[in-house]
């Protein structure tokens, strides 16, 4: 008569003690590296940006201010509408330049906007002496 041997069952044990630590490290990384966007609405969507073939450079969010100019020629800085007829753009940019000496002003402008609207804002930037500008673009495919 054959002898039947019972196999011993091995216990599988995965140590999970450090799972919490790993998770918290990941959490800390995301919390530290996240830079919150100041504006609540993207007034001009990325697919409405002008096209550029090359020379597209990245801009650090910490060193930049964003000016939105919509197709209807509304000008927005930090969600607040601004006008070129008063000093609001100059004041806003000078305040930002005091905080960030290497300030770069990013234009988020609809590609079909009349140049006049952009030119008027650029003149205000010249007045504020914040002359490093970036025309945000989408890459040509």
């Amino acid at each position: 008569m054959a002898k039947i041997m019972m196999k011993k069952k091995m216990e599988a044990n995965i140590p999970t003690t450090s799972t919490g630590d790993i998770a918290f490290l990941l959490l800390l990384f995301f919390m530290v590296s996240t830079v919150f966007v100041q504006e609540r609405v993207f007034w001009v969507q990325r697919d409405r940006f002008p096209f550029a073939s090359e020379n597209v450079e990245r801009v650090s969010r910490n060193e930049s201010a964003t000016i939105y100019i919509t197709r209807q020629e509304e000008i927005l800085i930090d969600d607040f509408p601004r006008s070129v007829d008063d000093n609001s753009i100059v004041d806003a940019m000078q305040a930002k330049a005091r905080e960030i000496p290497t300030l770069q002003v990013c234009f988020r402008t609809d590609r079909d906007t009349r140049y006049q609207a952009v030119r008027d804002v650029m003149m205000r930037l010249q007045d504020a002496d914040t002359r490093n500008v970036v025309f945000e673009v989408q890459k040509k495919l």
């Binding site: 959490l27 995301f30 919390m31 996240t34 966007v37 550029a52 020379n55 597209v56 450079e57 990245r58 801009v59 650090s60 969010r61 930049s64 964003t66 770069q104 990013c106 234009f107 650029m122 003149m123 930037l125 010249q126 007045d127 002496d129 002359r131 490093n132 500008v133 970036v134 025309f135 945000e136 673009v137």
Partner: peptide
């Protein structure tokens, strides 16, 4: 955090404007 984070990359053509007239 991962699902609510929206990455907003800023990239464009950099230039420097002239000084005010």
């Amino acid at each position: 955090f991962m699902s609510t984070t929206k990455f907003d990359v800023k990239e464009g053509v950099k230039v420097q404007l002239n000084k005010a007239v």
